[in-house]
């Protein structure tokens, strides 16, 4: 296929598929803990890290990772202090992150480089970034498998998980770091402004079909990989921005699934009446 003759497209597929595997692993826990907007807050805050990295002359992804970790720990700390209004913690950190990114971006000399983080540039991945994504993907997959039952129970019922003996604080801390790191690298590829969609949409699609938690996790990954592969093909042949195309395909599929299920339910209801 002509598309795979280009080195940058081969990299885009490798990085895209790796991210499509790890983002739903984080996404399903985020969705089930009712913190769907956390991806948005972290990715927006990552922009402050990107700007700081560009100003200080260090790799912007490393800057984004540092900013994301600080933001994620900040969200967790505020969430604990006001548990009944935990979503407020996301709004507070997002506001602070966007504000800081706005101020720092005024000092960035190469505006084009900064802007590439807004909508991502999966076809402009460097060797270092590809290795970083591969290492982070391995770490996230390993942690998700090892902490599978702990994350499941905490997402289901944090209080009972604590009573069952699960070290809730430790697991939440590890998950917070994994979320921050995943969002940082994903912001570079699919873009900071749309990362949360990729975290939520495949999970939303999978929840329409999953007959168990395990199935929902596997379906989420399958949907994310499907959206990424189709999105990259479409972006290449139709000359579209890859990040936005991937997310739009996901949203389109979700709407289609919801619509199809509604039609099916009506047909079944009519058949039962007959």
């Amino acid at each position: 296929m002509a598309i795979f003759e280009y080195d940058f497209m081969r990299r885009a597929f490798i990085v895209g598929i790796l991210l499509a595997i790890i983002i739903p692993c984080i996404g399903i826990i985020v969705v089930l803990k009712r913190l769907s907007m956390i991806g948005d807050a972290l990715s927006h805050t990552s922009l402050a890290g990107v700007a700081a990295g560009l100003i200080m002359g260090i790799n912007p992804i490393l800057g984004a990772i540092a900013a994301c970790i600080a933001a994620a720990l900040g969200i967790e700390a505020i969430r604990k202090r006001i548990p009944k209004y935990s979503e407020m913690s996301i709004a507070i950190i997002m506001s602070a992150g966007v504000g800081l990114a706005g101020v720092l971006s005024g000092f960035v000399k190469n505006a084009a480089n900064f802007n590439s983080f807004l909508f991502g540039s999966i076809v402009a991945i460097s060797d270092f970034e590809m290795i970083l994504v591969a290492c982070i993907s391995c770490a996230v997959i390993l942690a998700f498998i090892l902490l599978y039952k702990e994350l499941f129970y905490i997402a289901l019922d944090e209080r009972s998980a604590r009573l069952a003996g699960i070290p809730v604080k430790t697991v939440n801390f590890i998950f917070t770091i994994l979320t921050a790191v995943t969002v940082s690298v994903a912001a570079r590829t699919v873009g900071a402004l749309i990362i949360s969609s990729l975290m939520v949409v495949p999970v939303a699609c999978a929840m329409e079909f999953g007959k168990s938690y395990k199935q929902t996790v596997l379906y989420s990954i399958c949907f994310a990989v499907f959206f990424t592969v189709v999105g990259l093909f479409l972006a290449y042949y139709a000359r579209l921005k890859p990040g936005g195309t991937i997310v739009l395909i996901g949203v389109f599929c979700l709407v289609l699934i919801l619509f199809a299920k509604k039609i099916m339910a009506k047909i079944l209801l009519t058949m039962n009446k007959l």
């Binding site: 039952k149 702990e150 499941f152 129970y153 998980a161 069952a164 699960i166 168990s212 938690y213 395990k214």
Partner: peptide
């Protein structure tokens, strides 16, 4: 899955 989770 829910019952098994409590066997931590």
């Amino acid at each position: 899955e829910i019952v098994k989770a409590n066997l931590f």
